[in-house]
Design a protein around this nucleic acid. Structure first.
Length: 340
RNA sequence: CCGCCCUUAGCUCAGCCUGGUAGAGCAGUCGACUGUAGAUCGACUUGUCCCCCGUUCAAUUCGGGGAGGGCGGACCA
């Protein structure tokens, strides 16, 4: 497994915010970057049996933050998963353990990562009363809007309204300075920033990672339910097949669809957000017929070559599949041995 | 609590009035064409017709009940 290798010449602020879609606020992030030691960053995940690229994208950021001196907390949000209808409590608890193992296999240092099960503290009387206090401060429609990107299209339940408020409280109870999440978390985090002062708690700084576009269309975000997604249980052949099918015009900025929907290039996104943060060098194997192998030390160089036509998408895809497979292989081994 | 509308393929829906177990678009799969994918052609696949009871030779279709969803009203001295 390659260690994360950050480009030289970047200051702490640049490294902390690298590949972020958004930071709230910039000033707060700069303050954290000035004195990162002992500061705490966290991400909460609903336990699921198998990590997918979305989990790994935020995990990349956690690994980088560890290297910057942050204390990293991973919340295995079993109660949240239960509130979001992900199964019985016993089932969810079981998957939490496996998820933790996969994060470690992926590269989170077990000695420097605090894994916390939500139910360890979220059912305490003090927590529940604080939660009710936040409920008093929050309109139903605000809570519902915060959850819109998280809870599918199913009818909103009372559980869904409570869910984001618990996320806000978690930030207090886990003593978090920097909340990490995908862009789908932004409304939850904004809600936390708005309402936490009402219980005399300080609002967190937030850093949001981009969402990888749908693999086959480049539209919207990759979902584990709908289209293709890449997960830790994929075999090398599975990954090769999925990457093969990916939408990949020779540009980082594809034209919108006929319906006017914005499109991204998911292959380039995977290079940018998954491959280069973890590999210092990427070798693209290319038949002599087309010019032989290419080597890239940065995402920008690869993007430039794809745009110019020097790098053909089919060759880029081959390298992408190889890299993704290398990233996933340790976790896949972990899953396999669990099944035995 | 009262009333109205909805529930059929993965998705959006048609069909039901005038019973004979079902269709379109999109999606998906495969092929052609591009050194990837997409676009474009060509072919193909898909269903406890929400559940229960009843009428009938026969119910997705008619009747009753139930569940889930949407909307409106009432209550809120």
């Amino acid at each position: 497994m390659p260690a994360s290798r950050l480009p030289t010449g970047m200051d702490a602020y640049d490294r902390i915010t690298r590949n972020a879609a958004e930071v709230v606020t910039d000033e707060e992030a700069r303050a954290l970057a000035d004195a990162p030691d002992g500061k705490r960053a966290y991400v909460g995940y609903e336990p699921s049996g198998v990590l997918h690229v979305g989990h790994m994208l935020t995990a990349n950021k956690l690994i980088e933050l560890q290297d910057e001196g942050f204390e990293v907390v991973v919340l295995l949000a079993d109660v949240h998963a239960y509130l979001n209808g992900k199964g019985t409590f016993a089932e969810i608890r079981d998957t939490a353990t496996r998820m933790q193992e996969q994060f470690v296999a992926y590269g989170l240092d077990p000695d420097r990562t605090e894994f916390v099960l939500g139910s360890e503290y979220q059912l305490d009387e003090e927590y529940v009363l604080d939660l009710h206090s936040l409920e008093l401060e929050t309109s139903l429609s605000r809570a519902e809007r915060a959850m819109a990107e998280i809870a599918g299209d199913d009818t909103a339940t009372v559980a869904h309204a409570v869910y984001p408020l618990m996320q806000a409280l978690d930030i207090v109870y886990l003593d978090v300075d920097l909340a990490i999440g995908g862009m789908e978390q932004r409304k939850v985090h904004m809600l936390a920033r708005d309402t936490l002062p009402s219980i005399d708690a300080s609002a967190p700084t937030c850093l949001h990672t981009p969402l990888i576009a749908d693999l086959t269309t480049g539209v919207g975000k990759m979902s584990s339910s709908g289209g293709l997604s890449i997960s830790m249980e994929d075999s090398g052949a599975d990954i090769a097949k999925k990457v093969e099918k990916a939408y990949c015009p020779p540009t980082a900025d594809p034209d919108p669809t006929d319906n006017g929907e914005e499109r991204e290039n998911p292959v380039l996104q995977l290079f940018e957000y998954h491959v280069f943060p973890r590999f210092s060098e990427v070798v693209v194997e290319r038949p002599d017929q087309y010019g032989g192998n290419l080597t890239y030390g940065s995402y920008d160089a690869l993007e430039t070559d794809l745009e110019s036509g020097e790098l053909h998408p089919a060759d880029a895809k081959g390298a992408l599949a190889t890299c993704l497979n290398d990233l996933i292989a340790p976790g896949r081994e972990r899953i396999r041995s669990d099944h035995d």
